[in-house]
Design a protein around this nucleic acid. Structure first.
Lengths: 339, 339
DNA sequence: ATGAAAGCGCTAACAG
DNA sequence: CTGTTAGCGCTTTCAT
């Protein structure tokens, strides 16, 4: 069932049928209605490929997601999807699974399909990959932290500052032996957090201990194992700052298994402020990141570039996070009065 | 950069170039290598639309997801994605947001793009919608519970049995005043759970109280509000069974706010066994659903149908859930010895 | 083993 | 307002 069948049945040319599809206003109302009726009766739907062959606009953007089971990434994705949907565009979500090769393969797919643009969330790809995409004329936007991003459009958060805020809060509550338990992914984000942690420790005139910097898989399990190791140190920490709430959940579980009270024996601060951080026992102090907003801003940036021929200058949107103070980080002496 | 450019540079016809793309074995090794080299140098990628115009296979399947922020659905989606990826096929994840109209719009999109098949997760669409898709020659698979699914391929769980198991466990622990707090979505699944709940209560010779059947939004907030209402009853329940772990988390929060101990004052059982159910305090007894497996089975079913011309007979795969017994459901007198 | 040519279904000049 | 026609980039007979 193609455009010619419709044309024949309606006794018009294919051009006219094509017109009711694309510029209905240029067709006489009577002919148009007749053609529309016939289309409906025949359950005709235009062939997407033939269409794309002429248009070269696909109404699709690619969205690279590090891991679809991590709600942190999905919150961002939702922001992107919201904007895309509003633009009557479909966001092709690609589950990259923190695997550079898988991401590259997806990228090839997307480029072949000539998507109108691509958004990367905490991608592990590099400058070279991104440039290649842009050279094909496909605009991109990066969300998260990237090492070498001067020439790209990026939406990010000041992860360094964020980490400093968290550590300073612990310092302010009187803690001195503070460990940082961080995930292998997302890599660059976490490197920036490490920097912030180190800076805050140094600024307080304390000495850095490599033992207190523990790198683990960014999962609940990773948090569990990491915290366990930390507490088995000869000089265990009195507070643990983690690079994600999931790590914090795992860490809390480990502490409970060791019969340590939070925050009386060990304080904890997480990162991201996922919904559950408010429901664990005790409620988790954490760094709040505007995840949904990041997705929205990123998508807007991308659509601006897709729609305007002369895309705006590359540049970064840098958002500031906020510390969400709850019970898990409370000073042991003041805890009674604080909560 | 198209196939003709390559042909010219290589001094061959477009047909030969096309052949190295599709049937390389029918091209003389020397010519083939030359052409391949030129393609690489020119960074040529075949136009996807032109290709699809001839093939009519897109290497894409649609995946309808009720809500991408709900990890229950994403676990299933991950199962689908795993299989799709293995089949070198892309799964287009559509974030339906429990909105029938949004889902229909996505469906139109997918059909226009001639995806090779579509998988629906707990869809709110009906028999008519599904039939329309199949009439277009696009095979579909349903995951979850559906009202009128005899003519479709579906992967489901015995939700009725599952609910009975949970309620029976509570009955076995001595509870008599058991409420069921269930979500508005996914609708059919939860209706089946309601049935199971009622059946188990009746089988125990107890009388059903409408007050104990509370329907709320399927979110943590919904669970909080629902549990609060239940506990404000003149005769509040001594145990609450919820249709999802998220509802259970909200309910637990409400109980804590009322200074009620779990399970000493009120027992709780959730549904789904999401990762966090093992990390809340107390650990949550819940019904374990093989989410990932459901996705995998659904995808396999779909690809079988896509690949075989004569698709297998419609039929259902019905999986049995298991009760995961943890602390939140313990009998108050026996709790000491049980955990 | 390779080439010429006829489409695949649709859009957009151009002409009337 | 409508029809004619030339592509869009690729695949695939059918010859050679």
């Amino acid at each position: 069932m193609n455009i010619r069948h419709i044309a024949e049945r309606a006794g018009v040319s294919v051009a006219t049928v094509s017109r009711v599809l694309n510029h209905p206003e240029h067709v006489a109302p009577k002919t148009r209605e007749k053609i529309e009726r016939i289309m409906r009766e025949a359950e005709y739907t235009p062939n997407w490929f033939a269409r794309g062959l002429n248009f070269n606009k696909t109404g699709t953007i690619g969205l690279m997601i590090p891991h679809i089971l991590n709600s942190v990434h999905m919150e961002i994705a939702k922001g992107v999807d919201d904007v895309a949907h509003q633009k009557e565009c479909i966001a092709l979500m690609c589950n990259v699974e923190n695997d550079r090769e898988k991401e590259r393969r997806y990228l090839q797919w997307l480029m072949k399909r000539r998507v109108d643009g691509i958004i990367f969330i905490s991608s592990s790809l590099g400058k070279r990959d991104f440039e290649q995409v842009q050279e094909q004329g496909i605009p991109i936007v990066l969300i998260g932290a990237y090492r070498d991003n001067d020439n790209f459009h990026v939406v990010s958060v000041d992860y360094r500052q964020a980490a400093m805020k968290a550590v300073n809060h612990l310092l302010g509550n009187g803690y001195r032996k503070i460990a940082f338990l961080y995930g292998e992914t997302p890599q660059v984000e976490n490197e920036q957090k490490v920097e912030g942690y180190k800076q805050a420790i140094r600024d307080a005139g304390l000495s850095l201990s490599e033992d207190f910097l523990k790198r683990v898989e960014n999962t609940i399990e990773g948090g569990y194992l990491g915290a366990k190791k930390l507490m088995e140190l000869a000089q265990p920490p009195k507070a643990i700052f983690t690079s994600s709430d999931y790590l914090a959940f795992g860490a809390m579980d480990a502490l409970k298994d060791k019969n340590l009270k939070i925050p009386e024996d060990v304080a904890i601060i997480g990162f991201d402020n996922v919904r559950m951080s408010n429901l664990v026992e005790p409620k988790l102090t954490t760094v709040e990141i505007p995840l949904h907003k990041m997705g929205v801003y990123g998508a807007r940036l991308l659509f601006d570039r897709i729609e305007e021929e002369n895309s705006p200058y590359p540049g970064a949107i840098l958002l500031q996070p906020k510390l969400k103070i709850r019970k898990s980080s409370g000073h042991k002496e003041r805890i009674g009065e604080m909560f």
